[in-house]
Amino acid sequence: MTGNPRPATPGPKDSGAGTYVLCAGGTGGHMVPAHCLALELMARGHKVHLVTDERGLRFPGLFPGVPMTQVDAASTGRSGWRSLPQVALAIWRGRSTARKLFKDMRPRAIIGFGGYPALPGLLAGLSLYLPCLIHEQNAVLGRTNRYLAPRVRAIATSFRQVRRMEGSWQRRAHFIGNPVRPEVLAARDVPFDENAGRLKILVTGGSQGAAILNRVVPAAVGLLPAAVRAKLDVTHQGRDEDRGAMLAAYRAAGIEPVIAAYFPDLPAQMSASHIVIARAGASTVAELAVMGRPSILVPLPIATDDHQADNAAALVAAGGAQMIRQDEFSPERLAEALTGWLADRKALSEAATAARAAGHPEAATRLANLVIATGLIA
């Protein structure tokens, strides 16, 4: 069922400093919005504590000065029912660790950001009758959040339309947006230059790169008209093992690309681009919208509940993106999509404006307001 959360109400006045627990781990898609909320709460004078899994402790540059507690967590994943006993035991251990922490801390509220690493902390909070809420980054309510949704006091969403949101949960659902990093908000101030002498394409497949982007994009660029390629710059985030083949394909097309496995200044790279070719993870879609950059999105087909396709579809419906399914993502299809925008600067500019209009730069503020209000409910 598709839900339509109501807009978040104005925030409450803080009644003195309090402690708030954030439960997130696993991937950057969960960790980044939690990090943004932590910054907002701390800026208001509150204390923040992160409950996470082993992977969550390893993210560089996130949660500066925030105390962290690692808890056991697990998922059946591809193992299915055979691993249920071990998974249940890990979650129980994680819940016990978090429960002891919360008894000592007595936080005002606990917020989970989806994914199985958030589950032990939320279960501990619910068992102690503490105010609990969840934030969903994607346009489809994830499995962990679907399990928790009937039990928590509030559900914050990043999209106005959320698939798998049951109608009975609507009274507690609030449209918030997906918080983005301060450096993304700063990049929002960089105007989109439709009159630039050269156009820049940025390709990013996430921290591990995406093999299909590394194969298809250089070949597609080679199919573009020579006059277009002559005024084109390409920056490509790709895996080191693909670098040689990518470089050869780009050079055969007359392009001298910038290729790296990791760009520490990815928001700046994105804001300097005219077209971004990327997967459709929640954070990527949110950042593209906030900065107002046109994109060609290739959803990861194995994403749970095909949620990346829903993420992409929302930005496509707003007019700020094109979507190509992976089974249709060929050099010819991509070249066709690129040509339409590269040959029509007005259409490209209109897509940038539409993407920006779909962004929610205030999401961290709105989420903090909801968290504080939830914590004030007796």
Rank of each mutant, 00 (worst) to 15 (best):
C36M: 02
E40D: 03
G61P: 06
P60D: 13
P64H: 13
R44D: 08
R55I: 07
G65T: 09
P60C: 07
L62S: 05
P64Y: 08
G26V: 09
V66I: 14
G29V: 08
A43W: 03
D53N: 12
R58Y: 04
V48C: 11
L57N: 13
F59I: 07
M68P: 02
G65I: 02
L50W: 12
R55L: 14
V48G: 04
A43N: 14
H35M: 10
T52W: 14
L39A: 03
R44M: 11
T52M: 13
G29K: 08
G28K: 04
M68Y: 00
L39Q: 09
M31G: 01
T52N: 14
L50T: 11
V51G: 08
L57Q: 14
G56Q: 11
R55F: 13
G65S: 00
G65P: 05
L41W: 08
L57C: 13
G45Q: 09
C36E: 02
G45M: 11
G45R: 11
G25L: 10
L62H: 00
K47L: 09
H35E: 08
H46M: 10
P33C: 05
V32N: 02
M42G: 01
G25N: 10
F59Y: 15
K47A: 15
L57M: 15
F63D: 06
T27N: 02
E54K: 13
M42L: 11
R44G: 13
H46S: 10
G65K: 02
V48Q: 03
H49A: 04
R58T: 15
H35Y: 07
G25V: 08
L41S: 01
A34W: 03
H49F: 10
P64N: 12
K47E: 15
G28S: 06
C36A: 09
P33S: 05
G56W: 04
V48W: 04
M68N: 02
G61Q: 00
H30C: 06
L41F: 00
G25F: 11
P60S: 11
R55N: 13
P64C: 07
A38M: 12
L57A: 14
H35P: 10
V66Q: 09
R44S: 10
A34E: 09
R44T: 03
V32A: 05
A43E: 15
R55K: 15
V66E: 11
V66R: 03
C36H: 00
K47V: 00
A38H: 12
P33I: 03
M42N: 07
M42S: 12
G26S: 04
V66H: 07
G65R: 03
G25K: 10
L50E: 04
H35W: 05
